[in-house]
Structures are given as structure tokens and as C-alpha cells.
Design a protein around this nucleic acid. Structure first.
Length: 352
DNA sequence: TAGTCGTGGTC
DNA sequence: TGACCAAGACT
């Protein structure tokens, strides 16, 4: 590697030695790497998710399942319920699949980027990140932070997603062969705290001297992103059926929206269309309220209706279970249905 | 390649 | 207040 290409990583690592964030899944700069299990778990949780949101979940998961073999032996429903509220539930399904694959091959994570990439839920970013952080491999780690830092550093104006090829090539040129994990985490810390999407703090940036976008006074203009499509507004209904201090809950199909999660029965709303399928019991139904929830690609106005009659959905050939109200917080409802359940619960209390 | 897939914080 | 965004993966 030429001397000039080491200036950037060296400046970044010097900055990281002083300013590294202290995080539960991280070891301090220049110290031995953390347990690969904790690196893997944190990386999966951090996909498209903020550090603040992950912290509590990481603590609960590691306390309950201290190793990958312990997690591999967990029941599916327990893991899904523990993940409830964190979002992108395919990650939890893949987490279990990955833990079981690792446990089945001896309980040790593979130590190379290529082998990690083959595991469920580990894409290009996560495989590279684990290889670098847990095993010290010189892997080119490119997440949204790195994309932003590199696009600005080299003033790469090719719009995403096509511009990712040029960004990756540029990232390759500044990735050092030593301290691979620290370098990757330093890039992400820089992107999270200094080289932010809006109002970057260039005056505090250790990479300001060589930064091409900064020199042009155009840091915030990079990376160039395409305009986003408008979100459709959908409508649907959820149904609260209460008997003897229990509520009727279903488990959603394994794939698709909120897949594998417990939920209130609903009318089949989706990103593509409003709901419309009939309720699990004949009426009368009474409107308890409306929940407004915004997903990544659509918004939903979900009416919550409570049942005011008799009948048993279990005898109406519906798949589900009676869940005790005093343990509702253990049901692992995703946020949308947790909000809906709060309305249903309150409405029934008012009646009583 | 482009669409799908959650949630909560920020400005 | 709404649009943007976060340590992306999968199909």
C-alpha cells in the first residue's frame, strides 16, 4: 500500500482512539475483539435500526440466551416475542435459522467473510462487519454510514443505487490491513456522529483535510439519492374478542408483513390493498378507536372493533388462541397491534 | 433491479 | 407535521 493511501485510515483511527462510542457489544479501541456471538447478534439487530433502539433488546437477548447454542435451543415463539417491537421480523426468523446452523456445525461461527456470507440473514455488509470486528479480517465494510463518508470524501456524484459500485471501489482503497475492526467501527462512528446526513459537523471531522465534498462546500449534497415514491394510504380493521379475561390472538403466516408474529385477527389489509375479509365472528361489532401507523412503504389507518356478542372463534374453524389479559405484554405483539390492543382493552374496560 | 419489510427519533 | 433516516437482507 502506498504511503499516501494510509493517511486517511491513520487519521481516522487516531480519531477513533479518542472518540470511539462506548457500546455494550463493543470492545475498546486496540483491545481484543468481543465474543463473535455478541458481534453477530448486535450486527443483526442494528440492521436499519438505531443504536438506542437496540440497546435494551441486546441486553435482554444476551441475558436470556448467553451463547449461540443457547439461542439455537430456544422456542421459535419465545424468540419472536422477544424481538417484538424491534421491527423487520424476518431478521428474527433468520436469526434463529442462523443460530441453529451454527450450532449444528459445532457451535462456532465461521471466521471468514465468505463463509459468514452463506449464513441466513448475513448479507454483504454484515458478513464483512463480523469478519472485521470479531476476527480481524481485512474486509471492506460498507453500510449507509460508510457510503456517506466515502461519497463525500471522494465527491462521488453517481446517484444511488448505481453509485454503490464506485463508492465500494473507493472504500476498498482506504481500507487498511491492520485494525480492520476498529477501522470499520470508526467509519460508522464518524458517519453517525460527525458526517451526518444533515448538518455534517465538518469542523470536528478528522477527515476534513482530504475531503473533496468539504473542499467544494458541498458535503451535504452527497451521496446523491433518488426521489422516493409516495406512500399509499391503506385502511383496515382489527378485531378485539374478549371472554373471561382472555383475548383471541392469532399467529400470522411465516412470511410477509409481521410474519410469524402474534396479532389481533384482522380483515386482511396489506400494502397493496385495503382490508375487506369478514371478521372471525358475526357481530355486533363496536368501534373502539382508530390506530394510525406508518410503515416503510405505506401508511395504515386501522380501525379497532370490539365484539359485543357471543360465540367462539375457535369453533368457527379459526386458528388462534385465547391469551390471558394479565399476560398481554408477554404475547409479543408488534407495535401496530400493541397499539390496537390498548384501544380494545380500554374499550372493554369502559363497558365493564 | 426494484419492491418488500417496522419502528421511533429528528428537524 | 410530515419527510427523512437508521450498522440491510431477501426475492
Amino acid at each position: 500500500m502506498e504511503a499516501s493511501s494510509q493517511i486517511i485510515p491513520q487519521a481516522l483511527l487516531d480519531w477513533y482512539d479518542v472518540h470511539a462510542r462506548v457500546l455494550p457489544w463493543r470492545s475498546p479501541p486496540g483491545t481484543p475483539p468481543p465474543d463473535p456471538y455478541r458481534v453477530w447478534l448486535s450486527e443483526v439487530m442494528l440492521q436499519q435500526t438505531t443504536v438506542m433502539a437496540v440497546k435494551d433488546y441486546f441486553a435482554r437477548f444476551t441475558a436470556r440466551w448467553p451463547s449461540v447454542t443457547a439461542l439455537a435451543e430456544a422456542a421459535d415463539g419465545d424468540v419472536m416475542a422477544a424481538w417484538a417491537g424491534l421491527g423487520y421480523y424476518a431478521r428474527a426468523r433468520n436469526l434463529l435459522a442462523c443460530a441453529r446452523a451454527v450450532a449444528a456445525t459445532g457451535g462456532e461461527f465461521p471466521q471468514t467473510e465468505a463463509a459468514l456470507r452463506a449464513l441466513p440473514g448475513l448479507g454483504a455488509y454484515t458478513a464483512a462487519a463480523i469478519a472485521a470486528i470479531a476476527f480481524g479480517e481485512r474486509a471492506v465494510v460498507v453500510d449507509a454510514n460508510v457510503e456517506r463518508v466515502v461519497a463525500r470524501l471522494f465527491a462521488i456524484g453517481d446517484p444511488l443505487p448505481g453509485g454503490r459500485k464506485a463508492i465500494r471501489a473507493a472504500a476498498e482503497t482506504i481500507t487498511p490491513s491492520s485494525r480492520a475492526g476498529d477501522f470499520a467501527q470508526a467509519m460508522m462512528d464518524l458517519g453517525a456522529t460527525i458526517c451526518t446526513p444533515r448538518n455534517p459537523r465538518c469542523l470536528l471531522c478528522p477527515l476534513a483535510p482530504p475531503c473533496a465534498a468539504r473542499a467544494a462546500g458541498q458535503a451535504e449534497a452527497y451521496p446523491v439519492k433518488p426521489a422516493k415514491a409516495a406512500k399509499p394510504a391503506r385502511q383496515g380493521r382489527a378485531f378485539w374478542i374478549e371472554r373471561d379475561e382472555h383475548v383471541w390472538l392469532v399467529t400470522r403466516p411465516g412470511k410477509g408483513m409481521l410474519g410469524g408474529m402474534r396479532a389481533l385477527p384482522d380483515d386482511g389489509w396489506s400494502a397493496r390493498a385495503d382490508g375487506g375479509t369478514p371478521p372471525p365472528l358475526p357481530g355486533p361489532w363496536q368501534r373502539a378507536g382508530v390506530v394510525r401507523h406508518v410503515f416503510t412503504h405505506f401508511s395504515l389507518e386501522l380501525s379497532v372493533d370490539v365484539h359485543g356478542g357471543a360465540g367462539d372463534p375457535a369453533q368457527a374453524d379459526a386458528a388462534g388462541e385465547w391469551w390471558p389479559l394479565d399476560r398481554l405484554d408477554e404475547a409479543g405483539l408488534p407495535t401496530l397491534f400493541a397499539k390496537a390492543a390498548a384501544l380494545g382493552l380500554a374499550a372493554m374496560k369502559d363497558v365493564a
